[in-house]
Design a protein around this nucleic acid. Sequence first.
DNA 1: TATAAACCCTATCTTTTTTATAGAGTTTAT
DNA 2: ATAAACTCTATAAAAAAGATAGGGTTTATA
Lengths: 138, 138
Amino acid sequence: MLSKKTKYALHALTYLGKHKDEGTVLIHDIAEEYGISHKFLENILLELKKAGILGSKKGKGGGYYLIKEPKEIPLSKVIRLLDGPIALLPCVSLNYYEPCSECKDEATCGINKVMVQVRDETLKILENKTLADILLGE
Amino acid sequence: MLSKKTKYALHALTYLGKHKDEGTVLIHDIAEEYGISHKFLENILLELKKAGILGSKKGKGGGYYLIKEPKEIPLSKVIRLLDGPIALLPCVSLNYYEPCSECKDEATCGINKVMVQVRDETLKILENKTLADILLGE
DNA sequence: TATAAACCCTATCTTTTTTATAGAGTTTAT
DNA sequence: ATAAACTCTATAAAAAAGATAGGGTTTATA
């Protein structure tokens, strides 16, 4: 399951997508819309900004805005950013690889081989669904 | 990512699959093979038994054994049992449904709609990969 | 230039979940 | 009778997630 961080990030992106022609949007407005803690959401938006998905304007009259087209923001990117690996095991993660302590030899591990396939097929799904798909359903 | 419980369950099932013509297998032997805590593994095997995947024989000379064909044990079943939902959000889980607190109306939630699709496509993957596939790769 | 609005950043606290352990039962082969 | 081996429940320890706090910086505007 996705963490609340990722879920809230998706809600925030959806909100920003729906209001993308209205200039900047306040953290406050997003937090209120979904009943989320302002401060918790702040951290999330900051991460999305650092990842190059959002832009921000500081000071009075500031706020956040999308700097990418919704169709250029795949679920895979948001999930990796807030939740970490998409792979089911560390030993098959492309972005967060770590060996499994209990595994003597990855080359002869049947679980590893199957999980590589699961990872590739899962990635296909999550790279093809984007914020644009979410916005279409609203 | 899968929990260690699920990962160890997969290792145990793999071990049992490889030794399925040798009668029962001791918890001890599996724990030793992978350097896992005997007691932790014990709980896992018990769950697999309660779920009808393993059988056991008590008393001296006892142990565990597969009571299903490897090709009848899909990853989806093992993951659901030890880790819970496969869906990415509680509001789209088939087996562990719960509404999302921040969501006013699922029917008009674009995230919900996309996640239903992700769930269905993910399930296709995990229902089609079985213990038999793991054993083929060993 | 003072002020208030709004994002920026880091640290810490709390809660929940995961991982691991303990120990007393029960069953069964020998 | 004994020892081996699974059964069951409870609890402790560690890690991760969720939430909060508070001061810092930037900027529009009066």
